[in-house]
Simulated scan of single mutants.
Amino acid sequence: MEWLSFLLDLKRKKAELDKLKTTEDEDWKQTYDEQLEALNEKISELENEKNEYVDLVTEAEQERDLYFQQYKTSLWRVNQLEEAIRAGKFEDTGEEDYPGSYEDLPDWVDKNLSGRIFLHTRALKGLKKAKFEDLDLVCKALQILGIEYRSMRQGIQGGKEKFDEKLKELHLEISGSIDLSRAGQEGEQYFVRYPTANSPRQFLDSHLRNGSKKDDRYCLRIYFFGI
């Protein structure tokens, strides 16, 4: 029966070797999984860092574009004043060179109300769908916000009286836009980020209005916040 004992011993040895191989395979797989998990975590960490840098670059580019636009507008105004000085044109004709379309309104604001009025990106998009028929009144309303309203907010003597006088003259009214608690239920409708897309949210707490009809052709609403 020695051969039987020898055969059993061989089977036992083989079973031990198989078990050892299985253990080694499991250890190798566990090591591989751990290394793969660590690698994925590192990739995720690098992706987050990349996104942070991209956001910083985007914000810096937006600020650069904003300041460059303000610089160009200021330079244009300086050139206009220099030309007026050379030509001796200081008299006020009482006529305003308002734009002929909503498409031209942003350029008009940059040239005439630079540093006083800033049209947010959402406002620029809204102009493409604007239906209010009295574009001159829109310009005059923006002038009031950029001049009389701004003077009043700065505490300039007589500013409040001049502001109220202008509102009455143009049949405009100013009031709060919506209660802050209600605004929070409307998503981003009454909030904007200024001056860049990554800046804190600003609540559009006021609006200037003309007309009460629910017809966009005859009803003007300008939502804004003051800083």
Rank of each mutant, 00 (worst) to 15 (best):
Ile85Cys: 07
Glu26Trp: 02
Asp136Val: 01
Arg122Cys: 12
Phe90His: 05
Lys11Thr: 04
Glu186Cys: 15
Gln189Asn: 11
Cys139His: 02
Leu124Tyr: 03
Leu124Arg: 12
Leu4Gly: 00
Gly115Lys: 10
Tyr190Pro: 05
Leu36Ile: 03
Asp215Cys: 09
Thr73Gly: 11
Asp134Ser: 04
Thr31Trp: 14
Tyr53Thr: 12
Glu52Thr: 13
Ile85Met: 10
Arg122Ala: 11
Lys214Arg: 15
Ser206Gly: 05
Gln202Met: 09
Pro195Cys: 13
Tyr53Cys: 07
Tyr223Val: 02
Leu7Glu: 09
Asp65Lys: 00
Asp55Ile: 06
Lys50Ser: 08
Leu56Gly: 02
Glu148Ile: 01
Lys11Met: 09
Val57Arg: 02
Glu165Tyr: 14
Tyr194Thr: 05
Ser74Arg: 05
Phe224Ala: 04
Glu59Cys: 11
Asp136Lys: 13
Ile227Lys: 03
Tyr149Cys: 15
Asn48Val: 06
Ser101Tyr: 04
Leu39His: 11
Lys128Pro: 00
Gln185Arg: 12
Ser199Asn: 10
Phe203Lys: 03
Asp215Pro: 05
Glu91Asn: 02
Ser5Pro: 01
Trp108Asn: 01
Leu180His: 08
Gln154Ser: 04
Leu46Glu: 07
Leu137Asp: 08
Glu169Trp: 13
Arg209Met: 06
Asp136Phe: 09
Leu7Thr: 07
Ile85Gln: 05
Leu10Lys: 13
Leu113Ser: 08
Glu41Met: 13
Leu167Glu: 02
Arg12Val: 10
Glu24Tyr: 07
Tyr218Leu: 13
Ser177Val: 09
Gln143Leu: 08
Thr31His: 14
Glu34Leu: 12
Arg116Pro: 07
Arg209Gly: 02
Asn51Pro: 00
Asp136Glu: 13
Thr93Arg: 08
Asn51Glu: 12
Leu4Tyr: 12
Thr196Pro: 09
Glu2Pro: 08
Pro99His: 03
Leu8Pro: 00
Lys29Ser: 10
Leu4Thr: 08
Lys19Asp: 12
Pro106Arg: 05
Lys89His: 02
Arg150Val: 15
Asp92Ala: 00
Glu16Asp: 10
Tyr223Ile: 01
Glu49Val: 05
Pro200Met: 01
Leu66Cys: 00
Arg221Gly: 03
Arg209Leu: 01
Gly115Ala: 07
His120Leu: 14
Arg182Tyr: 10
Ile156Tyr: 06
Gly94Ser: 06
Glu133Asp: 09
Asn51Trp: 08
Lys11Trp: 01
Glu63Tyr: 14
Pro200Asp: 03
Leu10Val: 11
Lys72Asp: 03
Gly94Cys: 06
Ile222His: 02
Trp3Met: 12
Val109Tyr: 01
Leu208Thr: 10
Lys131Ala: 07
Lys128Asn: 01
Glu165Phe: 15
Glu59Asp: 15
Asn79Val: 00
Glu24Asn: 14
Lys131Glu: 11
Leu170Phe: 15
Ile227Ser: 03
Leu124Asp: 02
Lys19Phe: 13
Asp216Glu: 14
Leu167Lys: 04
Arg221His: 03
Leu135Val: 04
Lys111Gln: 10
Asp55Lys: 14
Arg201Tyr: 00
Phe224Asn: 04
Phe6Asn: 09
Asp179Cys: 00
Leu220Trp: 09
